[in-house]
Simulated scan of single mutants.
Amino acid sequence: MNTLPRTPSSAPVRIRFRVLPNTPGTSARVRAEVRGRLRTWGWPEERADDVVQVVSELVGNALRHTGGEARLRLTRTSDGVDVEVADHHRELLVLRRPADGDGGHGLHLLDLLTTHWTVEQHTTGKLVRAHIRR
């Protein structure tokens, strides 16, 4: 993540996409970086856990299911944070009802922890966006 100066908490701060390699330890490093970024933004720790969980789920899925790299962008908004994760796989996410032993739990977590989330399909892959209120 880029190092940015402190700004008032109401000012939007956009962090450019950060490329995440599909290598061991990437998800753990990203969780630590996101937690550190939220700390600099003054987020309460209990709300930071939700953001970290959402980022971890989206990045983990992108790396695990696509075999390639993922890209992450965080944007602080006036009422929370936007999380965007892009990958090079065009297959869209499917919310399974009910989740079963083989998976499907991650999207249910997104439903629980976010205000809303969307998936966009592009010619080069997909982009998942989620908003978490402070």
Score class of each variant (00 low, 15 high):
28 A>F: 08
122 H>C: 09
86 A>H: 00
93 L>D: 09
100 D>A: 14
55 V>Y: 03
92 L>V: 07
1 M>D: 04
4 L>Q: 14
48 A>I: 10
17 F>W: 02
71 R>F: 02
98 P>D: 12
6 R>W: 00
33 E>A: 12
64 R>L: 14
93 L>E: 00
7 T>R: 01
102 D>C: 13
74 L>N: 04
88 H>K: 00
21 P>D: 06
92 L>A: 09
45 E>F: 09
134 R>P: 06
93 L>I: 04
25 G>Q: 01
127 L>N: 12
83 V>D: 01
90 R>I: 13
76 R>G: 13
79 D>M: 03
102 D>H: 15
62 A>Y: 02
12 P>Q: 02
27 S>W: 00
97 R>C: 05
109 L>A: 12
46 E>P: 12
84 E>M: 09
121 Q>E: 15
35 R>A: 15
73 R>T: 11
123 T>P: 04
99 A>T: 04
77 T>E: 06
121 Q>P: 06
11 A>Y: 15
116 H>A: 14
123 T>M: 05
64 R>Q: 13
25 G>S: 00
52 V>P: 04
28 A>W: 08
21 P>Y: 00
69 E>N: 14
4 L>A: 08
84 E>I: 07
77 T>G: 07
99 A>R: 02
97 R>G: 05
106 G>F: 07
51 V>E: 08
71 R>A: 12
55 V>H: 02
8 P>C: 01
7 T>Y: 00
59 V>I: 08
81 V>Y: 01
9 S>W: 05
118 T>I: 00
57 E>F: 01
45 E>N: 09
109 L>E: 06
23 T>V: 12
38 L>F: 09
125 G>L: 07
81 V>I: 14
78 S>K: 01
128 V>L: 00
56 S>P: 02
19 V>T: 05
121 Q>W: 09
14 R>V: 13
10 S>Y: 14
48 A>H: 05
47 R>G: 06
28 A>C: 03
49 D>C: 11
68 G>L: 07
46 E>V: 15
66 T>Y: 09
72 L>W: 09
75 T>C: 11
30 V>C: 08
35 R>T: 12
15 I>D: 10
39 R>V: 13
